[in-house]
Amino acid sequence: MPPRTLPTPAAQRTVPVDLIRPGAQQARRHFDPAALSELTESVRESGVVQPVVVRQLADGYELLAGERRWRAAQAAGLHDIPAVVRNDLSDDEAFVLGLVENLQRESLSPMETAHGLRRLADLHQLTHEDVGHRIGKSREYVSNFLRLLALTPSVQQAVDRGELSTGHAKALAGVSAADQAGWLANCRAQRWSVRQLEREIARHRRGTPVAPSSSPKSADWLRMERSLADHLGTVAEVAMSNDGRGEIRIRFHSLEALDGVLEKIGVQLD
């Protein structure tokens, strides 16, 4: 029997559903059962309209994009599914393809989006603006989601469950990890809007020894914080009291991220 040849890049074919396995690098990890059930009924009636994207393996195919469609096809009892075969992609390119498709479909949870963007930035040492160019989004879009990585696990779970909006989450990302649980409890109990939460946090900060004045930060201060965040690849805050003293707060979400920050500011540990 002659050896099988690989298809040309972007070749479309029909692939057995049971030969496909989810890609380990995909950003999406959670699937709404009700929405998946609706899609399953649609697939059962009309089939899979848009092909999934896969790479060929020695014993099957790795799913790069379209896991919800593949799961629905399984649940509907289909034996085959249309697929675009992309054997021309590296691991990094495959990850970016899956991330972009999910972002375009708005199918990722806020924290899945944040972790996906962080991984993309770390893979290629990209600034927030560079990440935005890669995925077709603005720098502000990228920065706002990456700020969510400063949240504690309990607050991240509340965001993913829809108990907090991303606006609430961005406000909570600006307070210390030790204080976030308390702010979350107050926000739930009082049913604060995003603006109310921001006002309460600002009022609390005005009572601390090192804090900005009662007036909002100037455009120059905000530009400085954005530049620091872009350079370091993480959230950075500058706070100064009226007597000229202050501090710079740099957030990190793992020891690996801390190593990256230290490297960017020229600190070498023996």
Rank of each mutant, 00 (worst) to 15 (best):
T8C: 11
A10N: 14
A11V: 09
P22I: 06
G23W: 00
Q25H: 12
Q25W: 14
A34I: 13
S46Q: 08
V49W: 04
G66Q: 01
R68Q: 14
W70K: 06
W70S: 06
A73Q: 07
L78N: 02
D80P: 01
V85S: 00
D88P: 13
D88T: 07
D88K: 02
D92P: 05
E93L: 13
A94T: 03
E101H: 13
L103A: 03
Q104W: 04
E106C: 08
S107G: 04
P110I: 01
E112D: 10
R118N: 02
D122R: 02
L123A: 14
H124M: 12
L126H: 10
T127Y: 06
H128V: 05
H128E: 06
R139T: 15
R139Q: 14
V142S: 02
L149P: 02
T152C: 07
Q156I: 08
Q156P: 12
Q157I: 14
G162H: 03
G167E: 11
L172G: 01
A173Y: 03
S176E: 11
A177N: 06
A185E: 15
R188F: 15
A189D: 12
A189I: 14
S193F: 09
E200V: 04
I201P: 06
A202L: 11
H204P: 02
R205A: 11
P209R: 00
A211Q: 04
P212M: 05
S213W: 05
S214Y: 06
P216F: 08
K217S: 11
A219E: 12
W221Y: 04
L222W: 01
D230G: 05
T234W: 01
A236H: 01
V238G: 01
S241I: 15
S241H: 07
N242F: 14
G244H: 03
G244C: 09
R249E: 08
I250R: 03
H253M: 09
E256Q: 12
G260D: 11
K264F: 12
